[in-house]
Design a protein around this nucleic acid. Structure first.
Length: 436
DNA sequence: TCTGGGGTCCTAGGACCC
DNA sequence: TCTGGGGTCCTAGGACCC
């Protein structure tokens, strides 16, 4: 029988901030999305105040001020770096693992000859806490869906103390746990399905597990049926240790302010195109097509609305910023309409394939920036930006005080990835004191 | 009035995940 | 005043093929 472990970092973004800012311990903390728009992470204390995930910041501003909640902008440089540290510990402990997201990792525990799985999970948890400062929960189950469920129990049930193993429960015990789990808490059951299920009397994970196959297939498709099978202990999803190469890569942003100036929108699209191109080069890929989109503020009832996108294909697949930026600007030209206040845009690179497989086009020898890997200029640009920071060199002229740049009023330092932000420790009176 | 059966590819939209 | 970003897979419908 398969045994999956799920290691899940608790309140990950908040925990990352707390590692380097002890003043944030034991008090309510929230982390905001890009542009300081929505709450995307909350500490336990903030959760207790009723601040829901994904709430627009302005809607909870009152609660935040009343309870002196610490507010932070997202600092992805910090979160990615700490995530890599946690993953490296897990990789050493369980060679068969799947990095599922920035703060979650599945482990294949069936092939680990561990005499006492519970003790092993507890040791792993302690090690991660000590080495990185990040608290984690560990769930164990016979399918990925059950392991996810177990990790929720590990977090919520005080007696679990951070580790919960559903494979140790007998059938009766599992039934009891499923009965206590609201159907919307099941992995794969989102808001829409949850509403539909509750309206039809399916309230708990147990109700869903015992629903007839035909009914589930009709209401929730094959994906829903897989979820039900997984709840029954029939594994439909394997551990995927090699992540499949991406099919598409995108860079999109909501602008800090609505923008009516075409030059500003051009600058934004250039920046998005460059960033997307850099991402696929990093992945060793080239793209066969590109899509550009721009839109007005959908929340502004008084503004004239316009939302549009268009795409084009490359004769030869490419990862060259010059080709990608040029194409994005041609598309923008075709999309642009004067008189609207634009609030966001993006560049999507599609039809991705490995750079080494590029077949040159017969008509392509004029402009020699198709074949990736040969291009020394792109390599040089990536090296310089890798060393001196993103945006050190690039195409186009960045406008000072660009309105489209996102607002990040509460950004913490890049404690681990930028030399001048690294915390200093100094010795005073024989004891080390962090300067933070 | 009657009107096969099987396939592919593409696209847009929906649902879900974190 | 103030509402994220980056992905995946599935489904249905249309165009087209033999």
């Amino acid at each position: 029988m398969a045994t999956f472990g799920l290691v899940d970092c608790n309140n990950f973004y908040v925990s990352c901030e707390r590692v380097f800012q002890p003043r944030l311990a034991d008090r309510p903390v929230v982390v905001l999305s890009n542009n300081d728009g929505c709450v995307v992470a909350r500490s336990q204390e903030a959760r207790a105040l009723g601040i829901a995930m994904g709430t627009p910041f302005f809607k909870v501003r009152g609660v935040i001020e009343r309870h002196d909640v610490a507010v932070l902008s997202s600092n992805y440089a910090l979160y990615s770096d700490l995530s890599e540290r946690v993953i490296s510990i897990l990789a050493a402990a369980a060679p068969d693992h799947e990095v599922y997201s920035i703060d979650e990792c599945f482990l294949d525990l069936a092939r680990r000859a561990v005499p006492d799985l519970n003790a092993w999970c507890r040791d792993l948890r302690t090690q991660i806490q000590r080495w990185t400062g990040i608290p984690v929960s560990v769930g164990v189950g016979s399918t990925k869906t059950l392991a996810k469920l177990a990790s929720k129990i590990a977090k919520a049930a005080p007696e679990a103390d951070g580790v919960f193993d559903l494979t140790r429960d007998d059938a009766k015990g599992i039934v009891a746990r499923l009965r206590e789990t609201p159907v919307g808490d099941v992995w794969g059951v989102g808001g829409r399905s949850s509403k539909m299920l509750v309206e039809r009397g399916v309230h708990t994970a147990l109700d869903l597990r015992d629903a007839p196959d035909g009914w589930v297939r009709q209401r929730m498709g094959v994906v829903g049926l897989r979820t039900v099978q997984e709840l029954r202990g029939v594994a439909c999803y394997d551990l995927e240790s090699q992540p499949a190469p991406k099919q598409a890569t995108c860079c999109s942003r909501t602008f800090g302010k609505a923008v009516t100036d075409k030059g500003q929108v051009r600058d934004a699209i250039i920046a998005f195109a460059e960033r997307a191109a850099e991402k696929i080069r990093h992945a060793g890929q080239v793209c066969g097509a590109i899509q550009v989109s721009i839109a007005t503020d959908r929340f502004d009832a008084n503004a004239a609305q316009y939302k549009t996108a268009a795409s084009t294909t490359f004769m030869t697949p490419t990862a060259d910023s010059r080709a990608i930026v040029a194409a994005s600007l041609r598309i923008l030209e075709s999309l642009w309409r004067d008189g609207f206040a634009y609030r966001g845009g993006g560049v999507l690179l599609l039809d991705l394939s490995p750079a080494e497989n590029v077949a040159r086009s017969l008509f392509d020898y004029g402009l020699d920036y198709g074949a990736a890997g040969e291009d020394q200029l792109m390599k040089a640009i990536d090296r310089i930006n890798g060393r001196f920071g993103r945006g050190a060199v690039g195409l186009g002229l960045a406008t000072a005080n660009a309105q489209w740049r996102m607002s990040q009023k509460h950004l913490s330092p890049r404690f681990t990835t930028r030399w001048r932000d690294i915390p200093k420790a100094r010795i005073e009176g024989g004891s080390a004191q962090g300067v933070l």
